[in-house]
Nucleic acid binder design. Structure first.
Length: 281
DNA sequence: CATCAACCCTGAGAGC
DNA sequence: TGCTCTCAGGGTTGAT
């Protein structure tokens, strides 16, 4: 389930060709294939083809959990949701034939440089967009948690301006861009904030601590190349650092109390009932 | 504005 | 062994 660190890791390897991979910078599109129509949010397949063939990739980055390809005209944007992934591979296999796509490959973009970019997505929740304004598309996204322009003062003000349970608020992408279930649970634990606390009940020092906890888990996640949980995302090692996520019934590493699991905003939520107290509500 | 439920999907794991 | 059932999970949408 890619969150900010996983998306950052994938975007980085597409851009820099990390771990033996190939950088896509400068590549030119020669064809597009979409095998599951609903993976393409916009435009139509015909228009996508028409607008993208011949375009060149100028940059590859991330905004929230979106992977953004800046082309010499338009932007190609991916959201991996639960099970999506992007991989780059040679178009031609060892048998000198064009490699067939796998059963979970939903779209493929080939380049004049002899490689292709494959969007695979087992659960079909991921989406692809080709847009002429990435700013308009992202206009509802909240601030980047790692961006220094988000000061503790501003963060505290934003928390104060709402009256919501803290966990669903942190996962609300229009409030803050990039946190998902795993890193939210971890950050709340690190900051000793109960997931059901009301956002406007946090005093400034708590908000400051929470923001720094969020940054700490995200930075550590990026350094670990993300979290490999279940069969969905592979390659990262942050799962070895998890303090509460999927540790229900195991001991808190700070106080030994058993980690509890509750449902908050329809999401499985893991916390230590002793370290993360609810009292001010 | 906040909360909740349904929906989109599939593989995995449990129960039988 | 193999079937059926339930569940997770991000984000959108619609109801309360």
């Amino acid at each position: 389930m890619p969150e900010l660190p996983e998306v950052e890791t994938i975007a980085r390897s597409l851009r820099e060709g990390a771990q033996g991979g190939v950088s896509l910078l400068g590549c030119h599109f020669t064809s597009v294939q979409v095998s599951w129509e609903r993976s393409l949010a916009t435009p139509s397949i015909g228009e996508l083809e028409h607008r993208i063939i011949g375009r060149c990739i100028v940059d590859i980055g991330r905004r929230g959990k979106f992977i953004v390809f800046s082309l010499d005209r338009d932007w190609l944007v991916f959201h991996l949701r639960m099970s999506g992934d992007l991989r780059v591979e040679p178009l031609i296999g060892d048998d000198h034939l064009i490699k067939p796509l796998g059963p979970y490959d939903r779209a493929s973009f080939t380049f004049s440089e002899g490689v292709r970019l494959v969007f695979e997505d087992t659960r079909k929740f991921g989406r692809i967009w080709l847009v002429d304004s990435v700013d308009r598309m992202m206009s509802n996204l909240g601030p980047e948690p790692l961006d220094p322009v988000l000061t503790p003062e501003i963060f505290h003000q934003r928390l104060k301006s709402r009256h919501r349970q803290i966990k669903p608020l942190l996962m609300d992408q229009s409030f803050l861009a990039g946190l998902g279930n795993i890193y939210t649970d971890e950050a709340l634990y690190l900051a000793r904030v109960h997931p059901l606390r009301r956002s406007d009940s946090l005093e400034f020092p708590e908000a400051e601590l929470l923001l720094s906890a969020i940054r700490q888990v995200l930075r550590q996640g990026i350094k670990s190349n993300g979290t490999s949980i279940d069969w969905v995302y592979k390659g990262g090692s942050f799962q070895n650092t998890l303090q509460v996520y999927q540790r229900t019934g195991e001991s808190c590493r700070r106080c030994g109390t058993l980690i509890e699991r509750i449902v908050v905003g329809q999401r499985g939520t893991h916390f230590c009932p002793v370290c993360q107290v609810l009292d001010p509500q």
